[in-house]
């Protein structure tokens, strides 16, 4: 199963390595990890997505709670949360497929950030699955480079 954790942590050095080290040491998986400051610069927010069985996901929550630099842990359900991921991608094009690529961007809502002679630099964001789908669609053009933020999530309620 998938575990999505929204975690508030102290914004201090060593905290990120402490949290990621906890996953490494106990053999927990990190699928994605996104970190940024909150409105309070002493506190950072992390979204961690992990997969594992029920016991593992429960243990992750408990071990995160046990970490002294962790202020708050929330386990989010996919259904009740907004999950988003952002991506930058360089896609190759040529004269014959250029217009179909631009059309694809229009349909999917991807933004063209830069038009270079041999590639387009696109920005795309959406639910993690739609990011995956979009990547699949781009494959036939030729992906040169890709940067993904990992999931960030927030409860709707």
């Amino acid at each position: 199963m998938k575990g999505i954790f929204s975690v508030l942590v102290e914004n201090k050095d060593g905290v990120l390595s402490g949290v990621s080290g906890l996953f490494a040491r106990r053999g927990f998986n990190i699928d994605t990890l996104a970190v940024g400051e909150t409105d309070n610069h002493e506190i950072s927010s992390m979204t961690i997505v992990s997969t594992g069985d029920q016991r593992t996901i429960d243990q992750i929550e408990k071990q995160l709670n046990k970490n002294i630099d962790v202020i708050k842990v929330r386990r989010l359900s996919e259904a009740k949360s907004v999950c988003l991921e952002m991506m930058l991608v360089k896609v190759a094009y040529n004269a014959s497929n250029r217009s179909s690529l631009i059309e694809l961007c229009q349909i999917t809502g991807a933004k063209i950030m830069k038009v270079a002679p041999k590639f387009l630099l696109l920005e795309y964001h959406g639910e993690p699955e739609s990011v995956e789908d979009f990547i699949q669609l781009l494959r036939s053009y030729g992906i040169q480079e890709i940067q993904r933020t990992g999931t960030i999530a927030m409860e709707k309620v």
Binding site: R55, D58, Q59, K62, Q63, N65, K66
Partner: peptide, 10 residues
């Protein structure tokens, strides 16, 4: 320790 509970034994 909350984390002890359920770690080795349900």
């Amino acid at each position: 320790d909350t984390a002890e509970i359920g770690k080795n034994l349900g």
